[in-house]
Design a protein around this nucleic acid. Sequence first.
DNA 1: AAGGAATACAACCGCCGCGCC
DNA 2: GGGCGCGGCGGTTGTATTCCT
Length: 309
Amino acid sequence: MEMEALWMSPCRGISLPSSAAGVGEDEAAAAAELRRGPWTAEEDALLAGYVAAHGEGRWNELALAAGLRRTGKSCRLRWLNYLRPGVRRGGFTPREQLLILDLHSRWGNRWSKIAAQLPGRTDNEVKNYWRTRVQKHAKQLGCDVGSGRFHDAMRNLWMPRLLERIHADESAAAAAGASHYYSAASPAHEPSSKPAYQNAAAPIISNCARATSPEAASCVTGSPSSWEASPAAQFQTSSPTMAACWSTRQCQNGYSSASSGDMFEESWSELLARANHDDADSAGLPDFGLGETGDNWWSLDDILQQPLY
DNA sequence: AAGGAATACAACCGCCGCGCC
DNA sequence: GGGCGCGGCGGTTGTATTCCT
């Protein structure tokens, strides 16, 4: 396989020179045999079979015993992020996104801690999500993810939209009650006899509300029923603007985008455009300073030209 | 249709803490 | 107490895929 040849090539640093200082010939030979790069189906089967038979842990020993030419670390990573039963893949639901945003604001880059609150999600996935989606939009705002400006945008624009989306999804689910709604939102790769919502979002709802740690629990005050009945109420104490947004006509109109489940499919320009056009929403919004600097992605004019919903 | 840019994601690297000897 | 190995974590990189021009 061509890919394998590439990954195994010396230029990738896989084959260590046997004359490397401080490295014996045996060690060098062993190191040279180590594989790197994408895992093959055979390797996955070997690893999964071995872990099923002998359990996790002692990864270096495991790698040797299973006949895998991989480092213990590599085996551990592959197992935890991909092969482990219960690992969920595919786009994050609005609830998961909301939880990530909230927990990250509390804990920072504690990816494993955040992932622990998202059943089936790995720290690597959460981290990738943050880096690819969240940081991208921070860049679009011309600020850093750690800045107060981005924090304001997150709490006043993004999180309300997530709540809006969650509510719209739930309303549609309640109204339709039909499996076709769910299947439309289901990740294509997720083979399932159950509706995707039942597989993914529903457990998150309860897990968010009955969070597994006190810290996570505090992200959604009140009981699961109150959370589902009135998402805006959950934020009234921490963010009046957020709660206000929930009750605006935007929210009442629902969310109509073609749904992959990723709120980022709507750009910040669109969110800001809506905020700027809606007095009710813009009231209380911080000044994001768009147009003040030359390196912003959009001028204020560009933002105002965005279509309204 | 083709090429470049952007995005998404899997995998690796380096550091650190912990337990064991 | 110090060295060593292992596992865990966060950061970074490389590549496949998708999007855009």
